[in-house]
């Protein structure tokens, strides 16, 4: 039997139904919009009678919705390897040479067998990567410190406020070195390059602070695909745990990190769960320091409030929340930022 790869067009209802049924039978039943809307390409292998026997999809640099039926296959894994090969060639055509898989623990070995490397595993799901630049190459570019206590902070800084500054200053006082990882996902009001620059400028006077990009490894955990998990409660648990474990197993040891500083979270339930997961996962390896959020006139300083002030054109009301460097940038680019909000950029959330 000649098993050829074909495109599956999910915009076609009967094709989509067949695809969904095939996945459901194999335990993948989450087709929530946030999981499916970024799918760019879906491929499949069909049997002579037209039934689907293997499939996989691409969304940005993530391979997802992979499922294979081995019945009648030349050898176990042959169809799986064929699907992954084809997805990788298509990624290469799109000039993407570094990609991820989020999958159930039972498929971890199959992916390792075709060259993927596990970054972190939880009971609910695992994340693997393949290609270049991988985690080793990412870490090789970050300056190292051979002695003393090394603190770490991960922030989105959308934009950098006095609250962020307060956290960094505290860590800088209590440690010999501080890494500030800036989340590199481009989905915030302030673009990644802007956020990064504002963190750099806002901490330039602190000599023991090193600002680095979080790369592909410190992203917003809510963006972790969870299409293979049915239970909504488990999704947030899996996402926060996976994020904490990537940090724990990949980042801490090579950079000799001894603590992670977190801002307390009086305002967001999700971030609170995230802080809990980080504390639980990391405390046996490093110190997790939760710092009460900076308050000015009994008001918690938050970047959300700054973004609202931009939207409402009331910058003067939040000037005490932000360092001069951030204020200057906002005032110089106010129109552009407001335009982004008008065009639909969300300002609540992170």
């Amino acid at each position: 039997m000649d098993e050829r790869i074909q495109d599956i067009y999910l915009s076609n209802k009967s094709a989509k139904d067949q695809w969904m049924n095939f996945l459901k039978k194999r335990g993948i039943g989450n087709f929530a919009e946030n999981e499916t809307k970024f799918i760019e390409q879906t491929i499949g292998i069909f049997a002579d009678d037209g039934s689907l026997i293997a499939t996989g999809s691409l969304a940005n640099n993530v391979i997802k919705y992979v499922a294979v039926c081995d019945l009648g296959a030349q050898s176990k894994g042959a169809r799986f390897n064929k699907i992954i090969s084809e997805l990788e060639s298509r990624l290469a055509l799109l000039d993407r040479f570094h990609y991820f898989v989020f999958t159930k623990p039972e498929y971890q070995l199959s992916f390792e067998y075709v060259g993927f490397r596990t970054l972190a595993a939880t009971e609910f799901g695992v994340i693997l990567e393949k290609g270049t630049p991988n985690i080793t190459e990412y870490l090789a570019k970050i300056p190292r410190f051979d002695n003393g206590k090394v603190a770490s902070i991960v922030m989105n800084a959308n934009p950098f406020t006095n609250g962020h500054r307060y956290l960094v200053e505290k860590a800088a006082k209590e440690n010999e070195h501080v890494y500030v990882f800036v989340v590199s996902q481009d989905s915030s009001l302030f673009k990644t390059s802007e956020r990064f620059e504002l963190v750099k400028k806002g901490t330039a006077d602190l000599k023991n602070v090193t600002v680095v990009s979080g790369g592909d490894y410190m992203v917003s955990f809510v963006s972790f695909p969870s299409y293979f998990i049915k239970n909504a409660d488990e999704i947030i648990k899996y996402q926060t745990m996976l994020d904490a474990r990537i940090f724990k197993t990949q980042i801490i040891q090579p950079l000799r990190i001894t603590s992670r500083y977190l801002g307390s979270e009086p305002l967001s339930h999700t971030t609170n769960l995230y802080n809990d997961a980080l504390t639980q996962e990391l405390s046996d390896k490093i110190d997790v320091v939760i710092v009460d959020r900076l308050q000015i006139d009994k008001e918690v300083v938050s970047a959300t409030k700054v973004r609202r002030a931009i939207a409402e054109n009331k910058i003067n009301q939040c000037l005490e929340y932000i360092p001069k460097t951030t204020a200057t940038y906002i005032l110089e680019n106010l129109e552009e930022l407001q335009l982004r909000i008008k065009k639909g950029q969300k300002i609540d959330g992170n």
Binding site: A78, K82, S85, S89, F97
Partner: peptide
Amino acid sequence: KKTAIAGTLES
């Protein structure tokens, strides 16, 4: 000049 890939994962 650029990253490139060739070959497949098939037997």
